[in-house]
Simulated assay, not measured.
Amino acid sequence: MAALEESGAAFLVKLMNEIFGVDIRILDDKEAFDSWYQKMPEYRKKKIDGIKPINDKKLSLGAGIALHRALLANGIKEYEVGIAEHGKPYILGREDIFFNLSHSGNIAVCAISDSEVGVDIEKKRNFSEGLIKKVFDDKEIQDVESIAETKEDRDERYTALWTIKESIMKYYGTGIAMAPASIHVDFGEKVAVKCQAFPEENLNIFFNNYDEIMLTICSKNNNFNKVINFL
């Protein structure tokens, strides 16, 4: 449990750099879905209500549950969420808490930290030639094509690259306003990245693979726990 420190009238949280996850198949049970739905703040309920496909509803609720668990594990029971210019969520009135959400397949996650953070998970996907040329630079394409022995391996490597780029765009809160090809990823013993818009920024990349679900966390912290705390 994170400790609380009083600073004037505000309480600052010493957060763990962790990631919380939910396998939304637990929400197949209607009673479980309804029980968790009732625990959600109004903004999340409205978001869930506005979604038609049932699986997407579960993913949205799963993201809400992951955030709820992340904050509760750090002693935070009451909170309000705001949305920044490019859609990145944040906790209103709190400058000591940072989080980011992502979901894909059957998994929803929340990364929580005491500094800015971006997270992305992706189910392994097929990349068309047109998309490859649009989102990856020449060196990245050369590296993948020279190493990948099968189409499956090729798709896996491109998906991994994409999650890294996406986590960086979400870290900065720019979304697709930042061109993915402007971010270069070098897969060595340690993943290294270079972003044209922020060339001096030193970012740490934490990558993990859960079967066909790939997870990337982007953070300035060098000790982020990349193992998902599942419900």
Rank of each mutant, 00 (worst) to 15 (best):
Y158Q: 05
H68F: 15
F127Y: 13
Y43D: 11
G118Q: 08
E189H: 06
E116P: 00
K133P: 00
N209D: 10
A192G: 03
L61Q: 03
P199K: 09
L59Y: 01
Y172A: 09
S146V: 05
D56G: 01
R94W: 05
G75P: 04
K165S: 08
I76N: 02
D96P: 10
V109H: 04
E80G: 04
L59C: 08
A2V: 13
A10I: 12
A197M: 14
Y158G: 06
D211M: 07
G118V: 11
A70S: 14
N223P: 00
K165V: 10
G93K: 14
K133G: 01
A197W: 04
N204D: 05
L72G: 00
A63M: 10
R157Q: 14
I107C: 07
D137K: 10
G93Y: 09
M178S: 08
R44Q: 11
Q196N: 11
W162N: 02
V13L: 05
M178Q: 14
F127I: 14
S104F: 03
I54G: 00
I26G: 02
D155F: 14
N229F: 07
K57M: 12
D29H: 13
V191H: 05
E116H: 07
K124V: 15
I217C: 06
A111K: 05
M169G: 07
I48T: 11
P180T: 12
D137E: 09
Y158A: 09
I176P: 00
I176T: 11
N208W: 03
K58P: 05
L231M: 10
M40I: 10
S167G: 08
D23L: 04
I19V: 15
R154V: 02
R125A: 14
G75L: 03
M16N: 13
L72W: 02
E189T: 09
I76P: 01
